[in-house]
C-alpha cells in the first residue's frame, strides 16, 4: 500500500532512558480500519511504542504521523483530542468515580461548556451533560455494564474494570484505539467477551485498533496484521500466518533451535 492510505505512520522512532535503549529505529504503518497487533517478549518495548504514540514519552529520533499530522511533539492531551484513545496494561481508571462518571469524564474533550457556565450549571452545562449522557449510555449498553452504571469503579472486580476502561476509551470517540494487553489476567470466558467486544467495535465503527497482547492464539484469531518487537527493535511485520512461520520470531520466543 502507498503512504496515501496509511492512517498512522511510525517512522524510525528511537527512545532512550538514561543508558537503556528502549526502542531502536522502529517503523511500521497502520492502515485505516485494520486491527494491528504488537507482540513480543516481556521488555521488548511494546508499551513504550504506545506511550510514544500518546505523547507520553518523547522519542529522540523519528516521527509519528497520524492522519497526515505530526504527533511527535504534541502534548498528550492534544493527541487525545485528535482522536487517539487508549487503555492501560495496569488499569488506570478514576477509582473514586462511578462507571458512568468515568465515561462522562472521558467525554470532556467533546464538551464545550466554559468555566463560567460550569459554575452556573443550569442552562448550557446541564443540557450538554444530558446530551453526552445519551452517548455514554449507548456505550454502557454495548459493553453490557448497565448493572454497574452507578458503582464506584474502585470496588469492581478486575474483569469489569477492564471493560469499564475500554468503555472510557470508546467514550472519547477515537479514530485510533490503542489497547495495551486488554485480556491479561482474565479467564477464558472474560477473554472471549473482550475479543467479541473488540471485533464488534471494529466492525461497527470501522475503527482502527492497535493491540498489544501476549495470548498468541487470540492475536492470530482477531488481528489482521502483527508487528513483532524484540529488545526494542522490530524483527518482523506481516500477517499472522507469516509471523508464525518467521524464523526470527521463533528465535525470539523459543530461543535458537541449535
Amino acid at each position: 500500500m502507498t503512504t496515501e492510505t496509511t492512517f498512522l505512520k511510525v517512522d524510525n522512532i528511537s527512545l532512550r532512558f538514561g543508558g537503556t535503549q528502549a526502542l531502536t529505529s522502529v517503523s511500521f504503518d497502520v492502515y485505516p480500519g485494520e486491527i494491528l497487533a504488537i507482540i513480543g517478549p516481556n521488555g521488548a518495548g511494546k508499551t513504550s511504542v504506545l506511550n510514544c504514540l500518546n505523547g507520553f514519552y518523547r522519542p529522540y529520533q523519528g516521527q509519528i504521523i497520524f492522519d497526515r499530522k505530526d504527533l511527535t511533539r504534541l502534548p498528550p492531551h492534544r493527541i487525545a483530542q485528535m482522536g487517539v484513545a487508549r487503555t492501560f496494561q495496569n488499569i488506570a481508571l478514576y477509582t473514586g468515580l462511578s462507571t458512568l462518571d468515568n465515561l462522562m469524564a472521558a467525554r470532556n474533550i467533546h464538551m464545550r461548556a466554559n468555566f463560567l457556565q460550569c459554575l452556573i450549571y443550569w442552562g448550557p452545562a446541564h443540557h450538554e451533560d444530558i446530551a453526552h449522557r445519551v452517548q455514554v449510555e449507548e456505550i454502557i449498553d454495548f459493553l453490557e455494564i448497565e448493572h454497574i452504571r452507578k458503582a464506584i469503579v474502585g470496588s469492581l472486580p478486575y474483569g469489569l474494570r477492564k471493560r469499564v476502561e475500554l468503555g472510557r476509551a470508546l467514550a472519547l470517540e477515537p479514530r485510533l484505539l490503542l489497547l495495551d494487553e486488554p485480556m491479561t489476567g482474565m479467564n477464558q470466558e472474560e477473554k472471549e467477551d473482550m475479543a467479541r467486544f473488540i471485533l464488534d467495535i471494529h466492525e461497527r465503527e470501522h475503527m482502527t485498533i492497535l493491540l498489544i497482547e501476549h495470548d498468541m492464539g487470540l492475536v492470530m484469531d482477531i488481528a489482521d496484521r502483527a508487528v513483532v518487537l524484540d529488545f526494542g527493535a522490530k524483527i518482523a511485520d506481516g500477517s499472522p500466518q507469516e509471523i508464525r512461520a518467521d524464523p526470527a520470531v521463533i528465535n525470539a520466543y523459543l530461543g535458537e533451535a541449535n
Partner: peptide, 24 residues
C-alpha cells in the same frame, strides 16, 4: 457535578490517565 468537577477528580485519581485521555 459539571465537566469541570469531573476533570478535577480525574486529576486527583489518576493524573497520567487523565492527561492521556485529553485533560489539560
Amino acid at each position: 457535578r459539571s465537566r469541570l468537577g469531573r476533570a478535577f477528580i480525574t486529576v486527583r485519581d489518576n493524573d497520567l490517565a487523565a492527561e492521556v485521555l485529553g485533560v489539560n
